[in-house]
Design a binder for these strands. Structure first.
Lengths: 204, 204
DNA sequence: CACTAACAAGACAAGTCTGTCTATTTCGTT
DNA sequence: AACGAAATAGACAGACTTGTCTTGTTAGTG
């Protein structure tokens, strides 16, 4: 069947092309700042093809967020799984992935946080898709850490996630990739502390 | 002199009114999403009055960021100075201020980070104003912490700042003010560790 | 070969955007 | 009372916005 099944209503070469161009331009210039005509010109795709695959521009934005979430999740999983068995080396692999990202050309912060910023209302479809993606990312981090200490995995995952999200935002704002170093040092401190807690019930 | 000096070319009741309305609307809906006509209607001010005080819309955005930075800096300083003398209580006062903010109605993340997100280019006037404001905030945090241990104040300030910036973004994204709790716990851990470092030269 | 679905190209509607300009009015000062 | 700066109201230009619709072309199907 040369016609590629189509079936579910998602896989289409034109659709992918569109999402790829949109993701690139949205990330570079912002969601409101980029019009669909710019995307169509860049992807060399007709307007009707866009509106056959997506109901609205916001739908296209959601698609770029979902695609980015999948990509990041996959790459991080690979990086962590390729690291040594110790929790420390796994965490360092995770931070290594982020550092590479920060140092890559065209880095401009987190596409998802920026989307949540441009669509600040909680109920917005775009914002909701960011919530899902970020929650999945934190859950994945929790899963990684649960091998160490299942009881504290949730808390430690939240803390390290805050460090990472902060590092992404600050690295972009300052244009300074070395922000990841601060986050890494803090995360290792927190990890050691979780391993050997010598003052248990503190901290509110 | 009943005419209020004017002098420097900044203080004007209409100007302040304009900045206040703009800050409110930009924060609620986003910088690109809000047009100047909306701001003018809200502030009940004529268009020419806007363009007599600001060259462009971006200039108005920069003004809202500067005003917000001043307000936050002042409020945080007061909150910290009103706390007890111990570093722990000072830090708790700082986090208390953030928690109140997160729980206040209409909280929608950090206006400055969102501005940097909508104007991703480093050289942009808006982005630059965010850099200045955020750098000043971190410097202020460093100043607070320098009473504890001047050597580690800079590092600790960066780490806690990352936690705070991450908490702001995540609290908004998830619509969950309790994100500050994770940041606070982590910060207290890092503070204790800075106080009694029992494994010195680790962490890359 | 004939059919059909997908796509390209572009006109079009209806509205929005920023920024400029003119004409009129308000108001504090001399 | 008269002057002048500042504010208002609104028209206006020119460009841009999303989304719809039409027309013609391409390519893979039975």
């Amino acid at each position: 069947m040369p016609r590629p099944t189509k079936s579910e209503a998602a896989r289409s070469p034109k659709r992918d092309q569109l999402v790829a161009a949109a993701a690139r331009l949205f990330y570079r210039d912002g969601y409101h700042a980029v019009g669909i005509d710019t995307i169509l010109a860049d992807a060399q795709i007709a307007k009707m093809t866009l509106y056959r695959n997506f109901a609205t521009k916001e739908d296209l934005i959601v698609a770029t967020i979902q695609k980015r979430a999948e990509t990041i999740s996959g790459e991080v999983s690979v990086a962590v799984s390729q690291a040594g068995p110790s929790m420390r080396s796994r965490l360092l692999a995770l931070f290594g992935w982020y550092e590479n990202w920060f140092r890559s050309p065209g880095f401009a912060g987190c596409a998802m946080l920026r989307a949540a910023g441009e669509y600040p209302e909680l109920g917005s479809a775009v914002h909701q898709s960011v919530v899902r993606a970020k929650a999945a990312g934190r859950a994945n981090l929790e899963l990684i850490l649960s091998e160490l200490d299942p009881r504290r995995a949730k808390e430690l995952a939240s803390q390290i996630d805050l460090l990472l999200q902060g590092a992404i935002s600050c690295a972009h704002t300052y244009g300074d990739p070395s922000q990841i170093d601060h986050a890494r040092k803090a995360a290792l401190n927190l990890l050691e502390r979780a391993h050997s807690p010598h003052s248990p019930g503190r901290g509110r």
